[in-house]
Design a protein around this nucleic acid. Sequence first.
DNA 1: TTGGAAACTGCAATCGGTTGCAACAACCAT
DNA 2: ATGGTTGTTGCAACCGATTGCAGTTTCCAA
Lengths: 142, 142
Amino acid sequence: MTRHGKTLDKLKEAGYRLTPQRVMVLAALAGKPGHIGVDDIFRQVHASYPYIDVATVYRTLQLLKVLHLVTELDVGGSARYELIETEVHHHMVCRNCSRAFDFSPTYLEEFHHRLIQEFGFEPDLEHFAIGGLCSACARERR
Amino acid sequence: MTRHGKTLDKLKEAGYRLTPQRVMVLAALAGKPGHIGVDDIFRQVHASYPYIDVATVYRTLQLLKVLHLVTELDVGGSARYELIETEVHHHMVCRNCSRAFDFSPTYLEEFHHRLIQEFGFEPDLEHFAIGGLCSACARERR
DNA sequence: TTGGAAACTGCAATCGGTTGCAACAACCAT
DNA sequence: ATGGTTGTTGCAACCGATTGCAGTTTCCAA
């Protein structure tokens, strides 16, 4: 079973078709560790199947996102995607080097509960990501 | 002195030119309370000066943002803008009704400090905004 | 008050992302 | 195995936002 085999199963279980295009997009996602951009996915699939259209890549990613099979990472303009395999986590994205680091949802618990208790506002934290400056870049800058 | 008079002064002090287009964009921002979208600003300016181009509106807002004279509110696709006059605050934006509510930076202090202490990551919180479901919409939904 | 340098604008081209549509293909029932 | 339903794709048009460029305007210095 490949790294994205389970994701293919879940797609099918949810009643969607297993098209070659979708399989290739998922293979691209599974092929590189961490987050990967649309252009990167497109180039990779296009190399082996030149008829692929960007629209299909976007539609596939949209679908995978709705089914909670990928996470979308939005910080700083262009979105990047990651197969969901591990436990839920959030991301810190460096505005300088663009690297992403994970952190646990527990870091947002207090914030989450205070918004609910004091405003009755239920924040969407599932795909939460925060931009900033990572320690390496901060050190370098000094 | 109009509501945006001080902002005009700051623009000039920073060495930028006071063009009629910029004055009109600022007037539009000052004319409505709360956050306002680019299309709204454009329509308003266009009504009194039909030669205005969207590009100019975008460029003006970009400039005002860099100079910290407006805040940009990004949640949910299209950006909205607000003149900075009041103290610093963050926003909750309802994914259902699109209304925005303010909350104090103190709500993020614990989160902020933990990222610094445990990862050395300095998050950008200046324009922080979080999407979610407001209490009115949550009630209505039940 | 006026001349000139540099900033700014409008225009048009462009770019990333989305959508309508007709042709096509996956998949289930037979 | 095969046919029909219907989800999916590629294409092209489109949309909001950004950028290069040439002409225009602001604003300071003289």
